[in-house]
């Protein structure tokens, strides 16, 4: 219960669709069982279609998201181009491993579309940067077990953008309902070739 990963609670999930990807998170910030805020998003954008979800210790969610904002801004200035999702994933991996013996207590998820091929890209990490490439979905946070169950039963290959939105939303909403430390609203991003749609799901507020 006092693991740094489960003090504040939170959940995040990413999914692959047909020529699109989706990433979603809950909005809760808590201290053990007490909810402090229902407005703590865990997804951050680092390019036209590069997204990072961070669950775990809230302070590290903020610190790590700020750190990558700095690193990606420097990358963009140096290279005069946007960072690609795969390159960003490797940056996340090497940055986390830099703190191998005093890690950030976060479980990151990357989602995006490859700028060259338009192929969907998702992956997850452990807190010291080991990458988990996936063809279907990635889950993280205190509701990860519930999310695995929901995704395994709802996800199928070749979902279009609208179907993917429905699938990821239902997966997240129903997973966090069975986790006391997650929920209280959600953000859902649907990433298509020339369009990113962000939706706010109010969710159960209890």
């Amino acid at each position: 219960m006092s693991s740094p990963f489960s003090i504040n609670g939170g959940a995040c999930v990413a999914m692959v669709g047909k020529d699109c990807v989706a990433i979603a998170c809950d909005l809760r910030l808590g201290l053990q069982a007490l909810t402090v805020s229902n407005n703590f998003p865990k997804i951050f954008q680092y390019g036209d279609n590069v997204f990072l979800g961070l669950t775990g210790l809230a302070t590290d969610v903020s610190t790590v998201s700020d750190l990558f904002r700095y690193k990606v801004n420097m990358y963009r200035l140096r290279e005069e181009r946007q960072i690609a999702p795969r390159t960003f994933a490797n940056l996340v991996s090497s940055s986390l491993y830099e703190k191998r013996f005093g890690p950030w207590f976060v479980s990151p998820v990357v989602a995006g579309l490859d700028p060259k091929t338009g192929q969907p890209f998702i992956c997850g990490f452990d807190s010291i940067g080991c990458i988990d490439f996936a063809k279907d979905f990635i889950v993280s946070g205190t509701a990860s077990e519930q999310l695995f169950g929901m995704c395994e039963s709802l996800w199928e290959p070749g979902l279009d953008a609208d179907q993917l939105f429905e699938t990821i939303s239902q997966s997240l909403l129903n997973a966090v309902d069975r986790d006391a430390l997650s929920g209280w609203g959600a953000h859902v991003y649907i990433i298509e070739k020339d369009k990113v749609t962000k939706r706010l799901l109010k969710g159960r507020q209890d």
């Binding site: 140096r78 290279e79 390159t87 490797n90 940056l91 991996s93 090497s94």
Partner: peptide, 15 residues
């Protein structure tokens, strides 16, 4: 390469 797992573009290496 140890950061991005790819080799630098020519301009970056030149710089």
């Amino acid at each position: 390469k140890r950061i991005y797992n790819e080799y630098p573009p020519t301009r970056i290496l030149v710089q």
